[in-house]
Simulated scan of single mutants.
Amino acid sequence: MFGFQGLTETAEISLGVVKRLNDATQAITKLNESLRLAPERVREGWIERAVLAEAVSSARLSGDYVIPEDLRLVAFDAYDGPISNEMSRTADLLPFLRVASRRSPRQMFTPLRLVAMTRLRLKAKSGTGFQTSWISAGQREQRDFDDIRYGLEEVFSAENVSRWKGIPPLMAAAEILYLWNTSGCDEMISPEAGRVLASAWLARSGLTEKAWVMISTGFHEDVFSFSPGPDSRWHRKFARGVELGCLGTYGLLNRLEAAHRAFEEVDFSMRSSSNLPRVVDLLFKRIAVTTTTASTELGISSRACANILERLLHDGPKIKERPVVQELTGRSSFRVYGIV
């Protein structure tokens, strides 16, 4: 065993923790390289779907149970039933997580910049989801921003950031989550923001290009393991959760790549001017598509979009006898399509 200057002065890294850190690092590297080499539409589609899974898992860590298929329709304003408070809160997370997965990690680690980001979220128009996902309700007065600034300065002090650069990135990310809770930032801002910043640190350290590690996802099946603390037990739990999350989202990437290959193998016998390839691209990049959204985004008629989507539904590629493109609502009108 050997010592390190980490969560506590007396913390040590056991061989068991080292193995967990190595396993998690390998899983992160595998996911990052695969995403980097993936076709653009597959990578963009992965972000959309991984963010959906991360939002569901974040809700679970907060004690809320949300069905992913329902969230997909709620996020697309295509859900028929009443929307619960839990579902609404989870849907509010999606824009925040999307932005975080595309933002440069170097934009996230100075307290003043984080406070500025917090202010921008509060000024965002209603319905963007940033008000509830980035900062807790009620933190709107100047003294609240002062408390937030003090909390952020405690977590992201120059001393802490300097120390994190000298220890394994996963251990630094684990410490960010521990300090996020003990400083009160989890209540003043949000617990989800802390997990995003921990993922962003992994990207800043060079393990990933962007904040592609979906931390909550790895704790979905064992929420009680997510218990940030000042000792090696938390390092081990955190590394294992990160590994599981990366393995799960890597499986998602594999399925999208399989769908991509299936489309490449199908001969639709189309004219060179056909809009079908553009609709297929949109199906990859969005978690759900309707004739209206396809028409608006692609600039083609609703009738043409409807014909293409129905053709893909009935004559499109299959994987293990299951159509790649499916209708998500079971309705005969106002239909919603997606790659499942």
Rank of each mutant, 00 (worst) to 15 (best):
287 I>Y: 02
20 R>W: 06
250 Y>Q: 12
155 V>L: 03
29 T>L: 14
299 G>C: 06
101 S>P: 03
28 I>Y: 03
263 F>A: 05
287 I>Q: 06
91 A>G: 00
300 I>R: 11
181 N>E: 14
116 A>R: 08
41 R>K: 14
165 K>P: 05
260 H>C: 08
130 F>S: 00
142 Q>R: 07
291 T>N: 08
316 G>N: 09
133 S>Q: 07
201 W>H: 04
197 L>F: 03
211 A>H: 10
83 I>F: 02
68 P>R: 12
158 A>W: 06
217 T>M: 05
170 L>H: 01
212 W>M: 09
39 P>I: 07
208 T>D: 05
6 G>C: 06
138 G>N: 11
123 K>N: 09
185 C>V: 06
328 L>G: 07
240 R>F: 10
22 N>I: 15
173 A>L: 06
103 R>S: 14
31 L>H: 00
181 N>Q: 15
11 A>Y: 05
207 L>S: 07
325 V>Y: 09
104 S>R: 07
300 I>L: 09
216 S>P: 02
4 F>Q: 04
245 G>H: 01
13 I>M: 13
266 V>K: 05
137 A>N: 12
262 A>Q: 05
260 H>Y: 15
267 D>I: 13
214 M>A: 14
286 R>A: 00
5 Q>P: 03
270 M>W: 12
195 R>P: 03
102 R>E: 14
268 F>W: 02
315 D>S: 02
187 E>N: 07
103 R>W: 11
324 V>G: 01
202 L>N: 07
181 N>F: 04
27 A>H: 02
220 H>P: 01
130 F>T: 05
215 I>F: 04
35 L>W: 00
317 P>Y: 10
325 V>N: 01
286 R>C: 02
46 W>M: 04
200 A>G: 03
167 I>V: 11
59 A>N: 10
174 A>W: 00
123 K>E: 07
17 V>F: 05
318 K>V: 14
278 R>V: 08
230 P>Y: 10
169 P>I: 09
311 R>W: 09
21 L>T: 09
326 Q>N: 04
104 S>F: 12
237 K>W: 11
152 L>M: 11
314 H>C: 04
64 D>C: 12
277 P>G: 07
320 K>P: 01
322 R>W: 08
95 P>A: 02
180 W>S: 01
117 M>N: 00
190 S>K: 12
187 E>R: 15
53 A>T: 13
164 W>S: 01
107 Q>E: 15
19 K>T: 12
304 A>Q: 15
250 Y>W: 07
39 P>G: 08
192 E>I: 14
319 I>E: 00
32 N>Y: 09
321 E>C: 07
326 Q>W: 10
256 L>N: 05
24 A>G: 03
340 V>L: 13
109 F>D: 08
22 N>C: 10
140 R>A: 06
96 F>Q: 04
98 R>K: 15
285 K>H: 02
269 S>Y: 12
191 P>N: 02
99 V>R: 14
